[in-house]
Each structure stands twice: as structure tokens, then as C-alpha cells.
Write a protein that binds this DNA or RNA. Structure first.
Lengths: 225, 225
DNA sequence: TAGATTGTTAATCGATTAACAATC
DNA sequence: TAGATTGTTAATCGATTAACAATC
């Protein structure tokens, strides 16, 4: 685990490059990144493992341990430089690039997602929004009406032309499976599902279903006990 | 771990009642519940641990192990009865009751949440929606315009009158901390944060921040490697 | 220097998995 | 009966934590 390369932003990845991160480490690193991004917006230059722990509910020792596996990123007595740590984690997660998203459904949820910078902050860009409702097609959506709602029939063409890697489903539950099928046919391998549908997809496709109510149940259990 | 009470819906909880569930078990049980709820809607009467595994990405042995800690809920060669398992898990999680939610922010996201049945399916009811924008106050929101947007100044009064246990923040990031402070003052202990703000709250208050982009980063890592 | 915080070790704990007898 | 699937064991693996020397 020793690591003697200077921490000055060299381009190579630290040890561990060749092996896949474990699920847990990858998930935690993503969360650190989220907090760091916000901390930076709040004008913080450095952050301690204890502060990161307060926001992520991950033990501070665990955080230092996760990070030290890839290099000595901190300064004893001071903490971690926010900018430097962001770029290190991005490198470790190999998500420094820009990735294009297509959004399905131009209802309240679709508009909320299109207008948010929650994806943009992490290098994702919503480059297309689709709906099957003719009344909605052509409508401007997102900040400054940057996007125009496209007809659903353009899916395949747009996925190819815009190099879409993620499909986000903000459609009614009954419509979700069909969109998933069409996305898979178009070659998309990551689907983010905001509907309640249980999606059936081939094994090489990743589905992430957002379940706020599940998270609430979980929080409530610890509140009630 | 032996358990000889009939599985016929007796009211007592199985073994483990007195001890708190571990974080992991509680989280997984919540996810099983989500899948079971959807499976029921799809008309399934029984479900196998393997089917649950396919939808939750939890190993099927792990699922049987989680469940068998509380009783023998399954039938060998058949699987689990969906209805019975739902009520058993609800009992284990002690979330059989109804819990009231207040929603903050009547923008696209607030309206999307108010109009969804994602919370209702799990015994949560959105009973109030607030906004500070005078133009929005009084507007009907949710299915059949069931809710009218209330002025933010009514927060304390409504939390008391409606026995609100969860506050859901669908407000701009810059407004989130103030709402959190006011909710804490009103006695709410669970906050669900859809903004990007890092919220500062007392230790006895649970904050869950929804981070779709973080989940995407994570999915993308496994896609890219 | 004095205080703070990292990096790292060592020990513990819980999660995960394969395997398979029991039994529907 | 034959096939399927649970409940459970036993072994392994990774996560978690306390403690503390190193050092900024």
C-alpha cells in the first residue's frame, strides 16, 4: 500500500487501477464526490475526514482508509484539499469525461430533472428529452428552454447521433418496460428508472430504480425504534 | 433460530423483535417490500427467492437467510406467498401504520412527488404542500387537486395539527437549509432532501439526501470497467 | 511548540456465498 | 414420484472500528 509518487496531479492512476473497485468502495467514493462538490460550492478549500463523515454518515476512519488505498491525498493536521480530492476521485472512478443522457417523459418529473443541475455537476448532460404526447413535442424544456421535446420515434436515431449512454425513465409505470426494451435495442446499457415498474432487461444492462419510499421506510424504522 | 409458531398471521413479531435490525438488514427488507408491492400489482401470488434476487440484485441465499431469521415464511418447492410476506416484512419493519408527509416546494419536482403514488404504496401520505411563492398559494396539486398549496408560514401549525413525521424538501438548494431548520424547530425528525444542499441538523434528526447523479456515477463505473 | 488530523495497523464484526438436506 | 425451492450450515471474505504513531 505504500505510494511514493508526488500528489501533484500526475496523470497516472494510483495503485488499484487494474482491479475493479468493490461495490462498497465505488459507492462510497461516489458519495464523497457529491459532498466535495457541494463543499466546493460553499467555498471550502479543505475538508477533514471528520467533516466528510458528518455529511456522508460513513465512519471517518473508513473514509481515510478508502482514500489511502489510492494515495496519500491528505495533509496531517489540515485535511484534504477539496479540488485535488475531487479530481483524484474522478480519476479513480474514471468518470472525468462527459456522458450524455436521454430523458423519457416530459411531465412534471421530466421537467424537474431537465431543469436541475444535479446531473450536470457530475459530468452528465441531458441532451435529449422524449415524449409520446404530440401536444408536448417541440415544447422548450430545461433552463432557457435549451431542449425541445422530441417525438419518441426518434429514439434510435438520437441515441446513435448523440452517443447516449444513459436513459432516464420519467414515464408512467405502465410505459416504462416498453421504453426499456427500446433503449436496449438501441444499445443503451444503463437505465435509470424513476417509475415503479420492475424492469426486465438482459444481464448486461444495468437498471437503477430510484425508490424514495423505500429509503423512507428505512429511515422510519430507525426513528420508530 | 428455531421458530415453531404457525405462520398464519399471528400478531406477535417473530424472534428479533427486541433487538434493532442492522442497517443492512433493514435496508434489504425495505427493498424486498418494494419488489413485493410491485409483484402484487402485476398479479403474482407467490415469488421465489431467486426472482426476488433478480430484481433486487441481492443474492438469493442472502434473501432466504434474511427472512428465515424471523420465521419460516416460505414453502419449499413453491416460494413465498406475496401477501403474507408483505405483511410479515411490514411487521418486522414496524411500518404497518400510516405516516404523514409534508412537502416543501410546489415546482415541477414538488408536483411530481405529490402526483405520484410512490409514497402512498408504502403507507406514507402527503398531507400538505408548502411554497413561499404567493402566486402558487391556494393552487390545487396532486391527483384530483386533492391538496392546496399552503403558505410557508403555516409550517409549525400544520406539522402539529397533521402529525407530520417526515418533511420532504423539493425546494431550490439555497432555500433548503432554512426549511430544515424550521422543520427541526417544529419537531420533525426525518428530512428527505431532494436538493443538493448539505444540511446541518442536530444529531437526533435523520437526513436522507437523494443523489441520482451519485447513483449514476456508480453505475457508470461498472459500465466503463 | 501545541493542536489537529492523517495514514495504518490489528482486531472484530457482519455480510456473503456455496452447498445440500429437508420437504413441498 | 420428480422437480423445485426453502432453511440452514460452515467457510470465506470484506467492512468496520479503535487506537495511535507520524507529521503537518
Amino acid at each position: 500500500m505504500s505510494y511514493d509518487r508526488p500528489m501533484d496531479g500526475g496523470l497516472e492512476l494510483a495503485e488499484g487501477t487494474s482491479e475493479r473497485l468493490s461495490l462498497g468502495v465505488a459507492a462510497r467514493l461516489s458519495r464523497y464526490l457529491q459532498v466535495l462538490t457541494q463543499a466546493k460550492k460553499m467555498g471550502k478549500d479543505t475538508i477533514s475526514s471528520q467533516e466528510l463523515a458528518d455529511y456522508t454518515h460513513v465512519n471517518s476512519t473508513q473514509i481515510r482508509r478508502d482514500l489511502s488505498g489510492f494515495g496519500k491525498f491528505g495533509k496531517r493536521g489540515v485535511g484534504y484539499n477539496v479540488d485535488a480530492l475531487v479530481s483524484q476521485i474522478r480519476k479513480i472512478l474514471r468518470t472525468s469525461g462527459k456522458h450524455n443522457i436521454a430523458l423519457f417523459g416530459a411531465g412534471h418529473l421530466g421537467k424537474a430533472i431537465a431543469g436541475s443541475d444535479i446531473f450536470a455537476d457530475h459530468g452528465f448532460e441531458v441532451v435529449a428529452i422524449f415524449d409520446t404526447d404530440k401536444a408536448k413535442i417541440g415544447q422548450p424544456v430545461g433552463e432557457n428552454g435549451r431542449l425541445k421535446v422530441r417525438p419518441y420515434s426518434d429514439l434510435q436515431r438520437v441515441v446513435d447521433a448523440e452517443e447516449i449512454v444513459v436513459g432516464v425513465l420519467a414515464v408512467p409505470t405502465h410505459a416504462a418496460q416498453q421504453v426499456a426494451v427500446d433503449l436496449v435495442d438501441a444499445g443503451v446499457k444503463i437505465i435509470f428508472n424513476y417509475s415503479e415498474a420492475l424492469l426486465q432487461v438482459p444481464p448486461d444492462v444495468t437498471v437503477h430504480t430510484s425508490s424514495p419510499a423505500v429509503d423512507l421506510l428505512y429511515a422510519l424504522y430507525f426513528y420508530l425504534t
